[in-house]
Computed example of a mutant assay.
Amino acid sequence: MNIATFEELLIAAAVQPEQQRLLLTFAVAEPEPDTTPGVRARTTLVPVMCVDKQVAELDTFANLAEEAKRMGQNWDVLLVTTLSGTASQLPDNEQTEAALRKMIKAIRHGQMERLLAFDRGGDLLQYA
């Protein structure tokens, strides 16, 4: 299934044979220091808040963005991955926390190949 929007991700996660927990990290885009004059500045994504959600806890990107807005933290990009459980059980809190820490570490090191990135409108971003 091609995923182009956040809602399509929710549908894909919901139809998996194993229960899925979504790991969500909101990040701000900051320009990298020491860029060469005349060259377009590269940006680094800096995690500012994260949360895990069961697929059933989410319905639309707009509602998730509104929930994030109430937290009072600015963000530019939402990075998402899934954590699979079993057909009858979601991953436990310890597994989830470990996966979130691993995700944040990957973002800080620019290793985002296994993450989906969405803009503030819920549209999928392509990595350059």
Rank of each mutant, 00 (worst) to 15 (best):
G110Q: 14
P91E: 03
N63W: 05
S84V: 00
T82Y: 06
N63H: 07
P91I: 07
T82G: 11
A65F: 04
L83D: 00
Q111D: 09
K69Y: 11
K102R: 15
S88I: 06
A98T: 12
K69V: 09
E113F: 10
R101H: 14
L100Q: 04
A65P: 02
K69H: 14
Q73Y: 11
V80M: 03
G110C: 12
N63D: 09
N93V: 10
A65G: 06
A99K: 13
E97S: 10
Q95I: 09
A106P: 07
L83Y: 00
Q89S: 09
M103C: 11
T96L: 04
V77T: 02
N93G: 12
L83I: 03
A99W: 08
N93R: 15
T86F: 03
Q89P: 00
E94G: 09
A98R: 06
G110E: 15
E67S: 15
Q111P: 01
A68C: 02
W75C: 01
T96Q: 03
N74T: 12
S84F: 01
I104F: 03
V80P: 01
S84D: 11
V77F: 06
K102Y: 08
S84E: 08
M103G: 09
M112W: 00
T81E: 15
L64A: 03
M103Y: 03
M112L: 06
G85P: 07
N74L: 08
L78R: 05
L79Y: 02
V77D: 03
M71D: 14
L100N: 02
E113Y: 10
T96C: 09
W75Q: 01
S88K: 12
A99E: 13
A68N: 01
D92S: 07
E97H: 10
A87T: 08
K105P: 01
E66P: 00
P91Q: 04
E113Q: 13
T86L: 04
A106H: 13
L100K: 11
G110N: 12
I104D: 01
N74V: 06
E97K: 14
P91H: 04
I104G: 02
A87S: 10
E67A: 15
A65Q: 08
M103T: 09
T82M: 08
G85T: 12
E97L: 12
M103H: 07
L79A: 06
M103Q: 12
L79H: 01
E94S: 13
E67Q: 14
A106T: 05
L79D: 04
E97G: 08
A99N: 10
H109S: 12
A65S: 14
T81A: 15
G72H: 06
W75K: 01
E67F: 12
K102A: 15
H109K: 08
M112S: 05
L64V: 03
R70F: 14
K69A: 15
K102E: 14
V80S: 00
A65D: 05
K102T: 15
S84C: 08
A87M: 09
E97F: 12
A106D: 13
W75R: 00
T96M: 03
R108H: 01
A99R: 11
T86Y: 05
T96K: 05
M112D: 15
K102V: 10
K105A: 14
P91Y: 00
A99F: 10
H109G: 11
A68L: 02
L78Y: 05
A87V: 10
K105I: 06
W75N: 00
R108S: 00
R108D: 00
H109I: 06
G72P: 05
L100T: 05
